[in-house]
Each structure stands twice: as C-alpha cells, then as structure tokens.
Simulated assay, not measured.
Amino acid sequence: MAYSGDVTTGGAPDVRDLAALTITKVSVGPMDNNAYLLRCRATGEQLLIDAANEAPRLLELVGDAGLTAVVSTHQHMDHWVALEEVVAATGARSLVHAADAEGLPIPSETLTEGDTVTVGDCPLEVIHIAGHTPGSVALLYRDPDGIPHLFTGDSLFPGGVGNTDRDPQRFASLIDDVEQKLFGRLPDETWFYPGHGKDSTIGAQRPHLAEWRARGW
C-alpha cells in the first residue's frame, strides 16, 4: 500500500520507501505523538525524531540495527518521555537545539540553524523555528531523486502553526519563521510530517497563510 501518513495510537506504523531513505511513522500514546524512524538504505544507520513515549515500542521499531541519534524537535515533555530509556538502550546521541537543551531530561548535544545531521549517507538540514518553544527545529531532507521531506515537530500542522498560548510575540516569531524559512524556501510538493496527526504538503497549506496570520493563532 502507498504511504498515507495516517497512523493511530497503538496501531501499525506507516512506512515510506524513498530511493535512499526509509521513513517509518508511528503514533504513541497517550497524546497521539508522532515519532519518525529514519533509516539510510545504503548503510543501515538509523535516526529517531522525537522519542515521544512508549519506549519498548520504539525500541522494537529500531530493532537490531541500532540507533545513531535521537533528535528532539523541542523541549515539551510529550516529545521526550521515552528519550532517556531509548538512549540508554541504544547508546544513541541525543540532539536538540541549544535554546531547548535545558528542558530535556539528559545532557544532549546542541544544534543550531543550518547544522546538518546525517543518517548514513542522507543529510538533514536543521531549521530553527522559534515560537512554539525558543528552540523548536524542523529537519529538512532534500531527496536528490524526488521531493523534499520536512519534519516540523509542533511548529507546523495541517491547518495552522503550533500553539503559542495566544502570546502575540511568540506567535509573530513562529508565523514569521514558518512563512520565511519554510513556505518562502520550499516548493509546493514538499511533504511535511508534524509532531501530531496527519501529514500534508506545503502547497496544500500555502493558500491559508494569510488567514492564519490574521486570526493570530
């Protein structure tokens, strides 16, 4: 079956096979968090985006191939409940933006805008999107044989940007970064994978940017 990105807590993962990278999406409870396991098809190296919860389930997904790194998209607890256990079991590096590092339960290597995180032969560009938290990041994989793939954490969803608790300054920062760094740089066919719920494309959401800015959330 073709990849849809529609997963449910406790349900089966959905797998997308690209030419060089395999993306496995799974939802973990209790808050329907998405976790993404990326595997380089050439080297077998694996990276996890958001060790959100259900460590045994995530470790089963990782399997015997091991894990080189876990990237936390931001410091909110529902995205790292399983981080300590996953890192202890696999020896993976823990990576997070410097501005969110103090919010994590274990010491972590820090990321900044423009850094590259590699999964085997596949590079992921770090894009800093401030607003949902000070150090939220998106990760961009530019597939040389296809469309770009963007992992947005809680900064961008189908239907709007992430929660900023109605804080005007935080919202302005988030919507500006999303508009300039994501919609301003990436083509419509870019597929994005959020921290909760269904996936979408930049093109499907682009017509609604002005609406989001006007409503203020």
Rank of each mutant, 00 (worst) to 15 (best):
M1N: 10
Y3K: 00
S4A: 04
T8V: 10
T9L: 01
G10H: 09
G10V: 00
G11A: 09
A12L: 11
P13D: 13
D14S: 05
V15T: 15
V15G: 08
A19D: 15
T22L: 00
I23H: 06
V26G: 11
V26P: 01
S27A: 15
V28E: 13
P30K: 09
D32Y: 07
N34D: 14
A35R: 01
Y36V: 01
R39N: 03
G44M: 10
G44Q: 07
E45H: 10
Q46M: 03
L48M: 07
D50V: 00
N53H: 12
N53Q: 10
E54Y: 11
A55Y: 12
P56C: 04
L58Y: 13
G63C: 08
G63A: 14
T68N: 08
V70K: 08
V70F: 11
D78I: 01
H79L: 03
L83M: 04
L83G: 12
E85C: 03
E85F: 02
V86S: 12
A88F: 15
A88K: 15
A92T: 03
L95E: 11
L95C: 08
A98P: 00
A99K: 13
A99P: 02
A101L: 01
A101P: 00
I106R: 14
S108C: 05
S108A: 14
E109N: 00
L111C: 02
T112S: 09
G114M: 05
G114D: 06
D115P: 00
T118I: 03
G120Y: 13
G120M: 02
L124C: 06
H128R: 02
I129L: 14
A130S: 15
A130V: 05
G131H: 11
P134A: 11
V137K: 00
L140T: 08
Y141N: 06
D143N: 12
D143H: 10
P144A: 08
P148C: 11
P148S: 13
H149T: 06
H149R: 02
L150G: 14
F151E: 13
F151P: 00
T152D: 15
D154C: 03
P158V: 12
V161K: 04
V161Q: 06
G162E: 09
G162F: 05
N163S: 13
T164P: 01
D167Q: 02
P168Y: 05
Q169G: 13
Q169L: 04
Q169M: 06
R170H: 11
L174S: 10
L174R: 05
E179C: 04
Q180A: 13
L186N: 10
P187G: 06
P187T: 08
D188H: 08
H196R: 06
G197H: 04
S200E: 06
S200Y: 09
S200A: 14
G203Y: 08
G203C: 07
A204N: 14
Q205E: 15
P207C: 07
P207V: 03
L209F: 10
L209R: 12
A210G: 13
W212N: 09
A214M: 10
A214H: 12
